[in-house]
Simulated scan of single mutants.
Amino acid sequence: MQTLRNAFRCSWSSPERLDGKTVVITGANTGIGKETAIDLAKRGAKVIMACRDMEKAEAAVKEVIEKSGSENVLCKKLDLSDIKSIREFAETINKEEPKVNILINNAGVMMCPYGKTADGFELQIGVNHMGHFLLTHLLIDLIKRSAPARIISVSSMAHSWSSINLEDINSEKSYDKRKAYAQSKLANILFTRSLAKRLEGTSVTTYSLHPGVIQTDLYRHLNGPQQFLMKIISPFTKSSVQGAQTTIYCAVEPSLVKESGGYYSDCAPANCSADGKNDELAEKLWELSCRMLSITWE
């Protein structure tokens, strides 16, 4: 019903400017990340595109500059499947940037064959959750100093397909790529909820979102029948531009300044699964993430 209601809602747009603001977007060299970069650069923000593949990133920077008309766009190397790379990226940002007003945790992998990150995490939970959890932790002091500021995590309606297996978060006992993807997207929502509580009173707000079913190269790991299904429903899917709108909404919509920790879809508040509202589960995931990443984050 939520999706149906949202389909008939007037499309959202805002003249909001971001002059003098700095934005970091992970996975910004393709898809909705790139479209988000174009939009926020048009609004006057300095945009830092954090990407794994620097060759693709440099080509994307040129496109973002061309389409936005802003020269204030650059890329930096960030591999979210490698703690060393995340720490190096954060160190560079903390050293070179006086502020980060908006952090968009956008990068992700989807339903890939079983694999592990450089540090031994199952790939989907490692990149989609652990990598962004650590990155946010390493930038949080700079973000707080830049307040008012926002932290946005791109989740998915797929979060409702599974829960979080705290006993086997790396899917070592059994691996179902669909459930592992769902677990990682649920983790984004729970992280956002926990983070909002910890940031109360700091003027830093947090949001998670479902971008929509999008025409994206993330589907390359789907099997034959799944790819066939995606072809059938493709007329009803969103383009990358349309898919970026809820991210942009969470980044700039003035009325959200008083909101934090919520989940959004189609540029409006949306319902997440019961697990997505489970504060006890969120807290357990937070503690497990800190333990696995060997960090202390109160």
Rank of each mutant, 00 (worst) to 15 (best):
Leu4His: 10
Arg9Lys: 15
Ser13Phe: 14
Ser14Ala: 11
Leu18Met: 14
Ala37Ile: 05
Asp39Ala: 13
Asp39Trp: 02
Leu40Met: 09
Gly44Ser: 06
Gly44Val: 01
Ala45Pro: 09
Val47Ile: 13
Glu66Phe: 10
Gly69Pro: 07
Asn72Asp: 15
Val73Asp: 06
Leu74Gly: 06
Lys76His: 12
Leu80Cys: 06
Ile83Tyr: 02
Glu88His: 10
Val100Arg: 01
Ile102Asn: 01
Ile104Ala: 00
Asn105Glu: 05
Tyr114His: 10
Gly115Glu: 13
Gly115His: 04
Lys116His: 03
Gly120Met: 00
Gly131Phe: 04
His132Leu: 04
His132Lys: 03
Thr136Met: 05
Arg145Ala: 14
Ala147Trp: 00
Ile152Gly: 01
Ser156Gln: 02
Ser160Arg: 15
Ser162Asp: 09
Ser171Val: 04
Asp176Leu: 05
Asp176Cys: 11
Arg178Glu: 12
Lys179Arg: 14
Ala196Cys: 03
Leu199Thr: 03
Thr205Arg: 13
Leu209Thr: 04
Pro211Ser: 10
Gly212Gln: 08
Val213Ile: 13
Thr216Pro: 08
Asp217Pro: 08
Leu222Gly: 04
Leu222Ala: 11
Asn223Glu: 15
Gly224Ala: 14
Ile232Tyr: 06
Ile232Met: 11
Ile233Val: 15
Phe236Cys: 11
Ser240Gly: 12
Gly243Lys: 03
Gly243Ile: 00
Gly243Glu: 01
Thr246Ala: 06
Ile248Glu: 06
Tyr249Leu: 07
Cys250Trp: 07
Pro254Asp: 11
Ser255Gln: 13
Lys258Leu: 13
Gly261Ser: 08
Gly262Ala: 11
Asp266Thr: 07
Asp266Lys: 10
Asn271Lys: 14
Cys272Ile: 10
Asp275Gly: 13
Asp279Tyr: 12
Glu280Val: 14
Glu280Phe: 09
Glu280Met: 12
Glu280Cys: 09
Leu285Val: 04
Ser289Pro: 08
Arg291His: 12
Met292Asn: 13
